[in-house]
């Protein structure tokens, strides 16, 4: 058995969203099982089924390191500065 990851997309602008995974002996059965497990109530009108071993996995430590405070800038400081500068100019 191989493990496959299943993604579903609804009509409209929503992106593909991970629905879950299935175990299946081959690609054909994977599509069959994915459809039954995640799409039998028309949860999506497009489906991607991907062999899990083909999914590239990013390094978790690097991901954790990427969490630095200056990346969370919500723009408040810049907005405040702009407001002050503009009012000074007028």
């Amino acid at each position: 058995m191989k493990t496959y990851e299943v993604f579903l997309k609804k009509e409209g602008k929503d992106p593909f969203i991970h629905a879950g995974s299935v175990d299946a002996p081959d690609d054909e059965m994977a599509l069959t099982y994915a459809r039954e497990a995640y799409g039998r109530r028309s949860e999506g009108d497009q489906m991607w089924v991907v062999l899990r071993c083909n999914v590239l996995i990013a390094d978790e430590v690097e991901l954790e390191m990427a969490d630095r405070t200056h990346k969370h800038n919500d723009g408040k400081l810049v907005a405040e500065l702009r407001r002050t500068t503009l009012s000074d100019q007028s």
Binding site: M1, V22, D23, A24, T32, Y33, E36, A37, R40
Partner: peptide, 11 residues
Amino acid sequence: PFLEEDLAFTS
């Protein structure tokens, strides 16, 4: 026989 088949067969 296994979860996926269980779902498909009984559906």
